[in-house]
Design a protein around this nucleic acid. Structure first.
Lengths: 221, 221
DNA sequence: GATATCTAGATTGTCGACAATTTATCAGTT
DNA sequence: AACTGATAAATTGTCGACAATCTAGATATC
């Protein structure tokens, strides 16, 4: 699935995208130091474009920088994960509420059909719900909010960090099949233009997956 | 009042802070183009530090950049303002909920005394509630959430854009005195460790001020 | 042996110059 | 007069070099 396409026009863009992917996927491990000269030889670009890429990663909360010292990939902690899900709960809850107000009927219909199409798949191997489908669902609702700042904030900022946690804690992906039913209920609320309910359901949905991850985390210890 | 101090260690920091202030205060008007050479001569630094400063402003959603074209200060629109307040409602509502869970008693007591101290002031010139007081209140609750990512997001990202709207639409600034009572109710909920109520009250509080601004906006037309 | 100070190495911050791209100007054609 | 195309000016993107800062190791002192 093409989640949302970002086209790299400048060399700095390409470097940023690639670096981000390597960090999210764990090729560059959490906590690692990002040496500017090292990366500039690796990617065969000047330090200027590396610096710009690192700056953008910092804006995503994927790396942390200290002046005159350097940049490190963030370390993944249980607290950090909970913090992230609290933010997602607030923002995506609001996105669902706004989607109920602003999402065009056509988009709602598309989203609804998407879920219908996945129904068979869910029933067959009736345990899991593919991660891609989950992502697509959340993204469509975010876009449906029609709040451009919210869309940018979630797509550029939150999303990649959230994925980094999921990938590196081995929860790509997906959660038990009940997630599918939760999605259906949310869409129904949006379709009924019931923003209040849509927000409540979305927040619960995110709380459940947070709890699911928290359980896995404690098991890993 | 010292809202929260950022200390500029590097030349790029200083440029970023100053540029941000000039934009927020309107010295550099909304929609203006940011020429790199022009700014580098004005601030007497190289283009590299200007570029870095502009990158950071972009991360705050204060300027927009297009590759190979340049950066412009964002234009202030009614839609943009509403979008911003929707985000604030979601995030600061969550902050209030978390503050009810996590804020240390000492900090709650401080916040409470702060409000008590302002009571006389409010009664005397019984119309307005100083902007500084309002900022301080919101900031303390955000910090009280103890969610580091939320704190960063609001302090570095949302806050400056919100202030830019208030300054340039002439609503520094304060809203009618009822805001003071709303603040008191929120603190009471936090003090009672009632996160659910604290969130509801904070969201209402922000909705009210949004409506207040929306009214002023329509009057200006 | 522990602490403090100094020096050398490495890393980041800043600069000016060149390359690539966009925008403006102007001539030419229909 | 309006549109197209080529050329020139201006702006952004990228580069390598130098300056400022931090880090590590060695030496000296108590």
């Amino acid at each position: 699935m093409v989640f949302f396409q970002e086209q790299a026009v400048t060399s700095s863009d390409k470097t940023y995208f690639q670096l981000r992917e390597e960090i999210v996927e764990g090729l560059i491990p959490a906590g690692a130091k990002l040496s500017e000269v090292e990366l500039s030889t690796k990617f065969e670009v000047s330090r200027a474009v590396i610096r710009e890429a690192i700056n953008r990663l910092e804006a995503c909360n994927i790396v942390e920088r200290k002046a005159n010292v350097g940049a490190r990939v963030v370390t993944l902690t249980e607290d950090g994960l909970l913090e992230l899900y609290q933010i997602r709960e607030a923002l995506e809850g609001m996105a669902a509420r706004l989607a109920a107000q602003n999402m065009p009927e056509a988009e709602i219909y598309e989203l609804s059909s998407l879920l219908e199409g996945q129904q068979d798949e869910v029933r067959q191997n009736h345990t899991y719900y593919q991660e891609a489908g989950d992502l697509d669902f959340h993204y469509r609702i975010i876009v449906g909010s029609k709040n451009q700042q919210l869309i940018t904030m979630l797509s550029n900022g939150i999303y990649h960090l959230a994925r980094m946690y999921r990938v590196q804690l081995g929860m790509t992906g997906p959660r038990v099949t009940t997630a599918y039913d939760e999605h259906k209920h949310i869409v129904r609320a949006i379709s009924n233009r019931d923003g209040e309910l849509a927000e409540i359901l979305m927040r619960r949905h995110i709380q459940y997956s947070k709890n699911n991850i928290a359980v896995k985390l404690t098991k890993m210890k």
